[in-house]
Amino acid sequence: MQIFVKTLTGKTITLEVEPSDTIENVKAKIQDKEGIPPDQQRLIFAGKQLEDGRTLSDYNIQKESTSHLVLR
């Protein structure tokens, strides 16, 4: 499924993911596309910070959901 990640600069990154993917996996995909190390990434969805060990389905992130990327 596709999800979108919006950066603070207003850029939207499109990612191909599975509901069973962990947040860690998603951060690795963002690193592949954008070159941002996962330890600098914070992903926010529905006002919550997403934890590495959880999956997209844990957070009820469905296709075409948009989460926000904040850099630390």
Rank of each mutant, 00 (worst) to 15 (best):
R72T: 14
N60F: 06
G53R: 10
S67F: 15
Y59V: 03
K29D: 02
S65E: 07
M1H: 05
D39S: 13
T7R: 05
N25D: 12
D39C: 13
I3G: 00
E24W: 15
L69N: 02
L50N: 01
G35H: 06
D39R: 10
V70G: 04
E51Q: 10
E16Y: 12
K11V: 08
T22W: 04
P19D: 06
T66G: 10
D52H: 06
L56H: 00
I23V: 09
R54Y: 13
V26G: 00
Q41L: 06
T22N: 04
V70I: 14
M1P: 01
E24R: 14
E16Q: 11
I13T: 02
Q40K: 12
G10T: 03
Y59F: 04
L71G: 06
E18L: 15
H68Q: 09
L56E: 01
P19C: 07
T55L: 08
L56F: 02
K11W: 08
K11I: 08
T55V: 06
D58L: 02
Q62L: 12
R54F: 12
M1K: 03
P37N: 07
G10S: 04
A46K: 14
S57C: 05
L50H: 01
P19G: 07
T66C: 11
I30H: 00
K6Q: 10
Y59I: 04
P38Y: 11
D58A: 04
F4Q: 09
T22I: 04
T55S: 08
K63L: 09
V5Y: 03
L8F: 13
V26E: 00
V17E: 00
H68F: 14
K48D: 06
I30L: 07
V26N: 00
E51F: 06
N60T: 04
V70L: 13
G10M: 03
V5Q: 00
I61G: 01
L43D: 00
Q31V: 04
T55N: 05
N25T: 14
D58K: 02
A28S: 12
I44H: 09
M1I: 10
K48C: 10
T14E: 08
N60C: 07
T55A: 06
K63E: 12
F4W: 07
V70C: 11
T9S: 12
L50C: 05
T14S: 10
H68Y: 14
D52A: 07
E64L: 12
V17S: 02
M1E: 02
L50W: 02
I61T: 02
P38Q: 12
L56G: 00
E16N: 10
K33L: 14
Q49D: 14
D32S: 12
P37G: 04
G53L: 08
G47K: 04
G35S: 05
L43G: 00
I36E: 02
R42W: 10
E34C: 15
M1R: 03
G47I: 01
Q41K: 01
L50Y: 01
E16A: 09
I36G: 02
K29I: 05
K48H: 12
D21G: 03
I61L: 06
P19N: 05
D52R: 04
T12W: 12
T22S: 08
L43R: 00
A46N: 15
K11M: 09
S65T: 12
S20Q: 10
S20E: 10
T22Y: 07
E18C: 13
T55I: 06
R72L: 15
R72N: 12
K11Y: 12
K29E: 02
E16K: 08
T9F: 13
D52S: 06
I36F: 09
R72S: 13
Q62Y: 11
H68T: 12
I30P: 00
V26M: 05
G47D: 06
S67A: 15
I30W: 00
V26A: 02
L15W: 01
F45W: 09
P37H: 11
G53N: 12
L50R: 00
T9V: 08
F4R: 10
Q40G: 05
P37V: 05
V5D: 01
S20I: 06
S65M: 10
Q31R: 13
R42L: 15
V70K: 06
Q49R: 09
T14F: 07
P37E: 06
T12Q: 07
E18G: 07
S65W: 07
I3M: 05
S67V: 15
F45C: 05
N25L: 12
E64C: 10
I3N: 01
L71I: 13
E16I: 13
F45I: 05
Q31G: 07
G53M: 08
G10Y: 04
V26Q: 00
I13Y: 05
H68W: 14
H68D: 09
K29W: 04
V70D: 07
I44K: 04
S57L: 11
K6C: 13
V17L: 05
T55Y: 05
D21R: 01
L71E: 07
T9K: 11
T22C: 04
Q2F: 12
S67W: 14
G35D: 05
L71Q: 08
L15M: 04
I3H: 03
D52P: 06
P19E: 08
V5T: 01
E24D: 08
I61H: 02
F4L: 10
R54K: 13
T55E: 03
I36P: 03
M1T: 05
S20W: 14
N60W: 04
S20T: 13
Q31A: 14
S57W: 08
S20V: 05
I23H: 00
T55G: 02
Q31Y: 15
F4G: 04
V70F: 12
Q41G: 03
T7V: 09
T66D: 10
D58C: 03
P19S: 08
T66A: 09
S67P: 15
T12S: 07
E64M: 13
K48F: 09
H68C: 13
A28K: 14
L8E: 14
S65H: 07
N25Y: 11
L43C: 01
Q31N: 09
Q49F: 13
D58W: 10
H68N: 08
K48T: 12
L56K: 00
L69Q: 02
A28R: 15
Q40T: 08
L50P: 01
A28E: 09
L50D: 01
H68M: 12
I23R: 00
G10N: 06
R54C: 10
G35Q: 05
H68R: 08
T9C: 15
